[in-house]
Design a protein around this nucleic acid. Sequence first.
DNA 1: TCAAAAGTGTTCTCTTTACACCCATGC
DNA 2: GCATGGGTGTAAAGAGAACACTTTTGA
Lengths: 222, 222
Amino acid sequence: MTYSYDYPHPAVTTDIVIFTVQDNALCLLLIRRGEDPYKGKWALPGGFLRMDEDIEHCAARELAEEAGVQGVYLEQLATFGTIDRDPRERVISVAYYALIPSDDVALQAGTDAAEAQWFPLSDLPPLAFDHSDIVRMAQQRLSAKMSYSTIGLQFMPAAFTLSDLQRVYEIASGKTLDKRNFRKWVLSLDLVEETGHKQTQGAHRPAMLYRVKKPSRIDIIK
Amino acid sequence: MTYSYDYPHPAVTTDIVIFTVQDNALCLLLIRRGEDPYKGKWALPGGFLRMDEDIEHCAARELAEEAGVQGVYLEQLATFGTIDRDPRERVISVAYYALIPSDDVALQAGTDAAEAQWFPLSDLPPLAFDHSDIVRMAQQRLSAKMSYSTIGLQFMPAAFTLSDLQRVYEIASGKTLDKRNFRKWVLSLDLVEETGHKQTQGAHRPAMLYRVKKPSRIDIIK
DNA sequence: TCAAAAGTGTTCTCTTTACACCCATGC
DNA sequence: GCATGGGTGTAAAGAGAACACTTTTGA
């Protein structure tokens, strides 16, 4: 079966940049391609838009199919469409990005995707297509949003200590932060609350565990 | 001639939101549609992507063809692609936005476009397709960027007074600003310079005329 | 000489940053 | 009892907001 049009049409795809914080590094998820073009190369998860689904739905579906990642809040990044970005045909790609907690990383292993792996941003392999442009833009956007929104909370698991949270912010921003000022700031935003439980771990005073009050919400701050 | 594909392909278009400040109001440019669907309705300038042009080129071309507006700095806004946004077929639209000086508004009249007109944002007619969603998003983006970037300078003509500039900022933000603080702020950014000429206009002290130092550049401030 | 917009500094307030010690636990 | 990370307040500096009068021109 073929589909015919009076004028030429490009193909439309989505690509998704998924960040997490793992082993003291900001990481992103890549898929090793099983097909040409760029067979064997690492690429962002993503794929072709179906005619009966919204663009964001396409991104969510591809992410689930290729990487076993579900239920994340996707935000549109930008649309990439230079003429030769795909050797097969003209392809317009709508890029999305999302942040997931480091403890969801385990889900990753259970997927049936060909090969999915986390890479530290500081040590990425060469990427297929124009995916390094997409990653670069995602990095810029993330870094900007970290400083003027509550997006960073999306990195956090169901329960975490304030020191965990500070570590995530330090890794994502690349700066060290003052403990007292950071805590004052976080608590003043009124976005996290005590769970009532403490985490006893190691030879030191147990830390209060917190949870995010409205996990799905991203607010602009400042 | 027809174009055939193994899988269905959506059409891809661009839509452009052009802002200006005119008669003490923030305005945008609309085109009255000459064809179905939505014949006779007002819509954003825009049109179908050609296979041999980049997406941004498409936006610039449509803007020139339909509205006679040229040489503006276009910034990608977002991509809209809900399933039923166009009754003809599945259409994915990449939206752009730009700001132009109010004195370029005159160019508008000289175009051969069917019908192009400036509307104050506060008094828009009903729009075709999902264009009011696009406009809403553009408005949010503009308002955000006005507060943390130098994008507002793009509204300014080749020469202007600091009072002109303040007026533009007040209109775009909807707030009144303190004259001394505004001037201190603008001059501290080092983005405008004196032209050396003064504007004598009306029964009052002549005002120094300024120009933007790097007109094409948008910086993040604060 | 009056009206109308241009131009110009200082003070106060609030936000942000810098900084050091005691606490609870496991070994 | 000592090593380890958890938890807490205050003071100094910097950024942002408030505020009123003199100048130059045309009519």
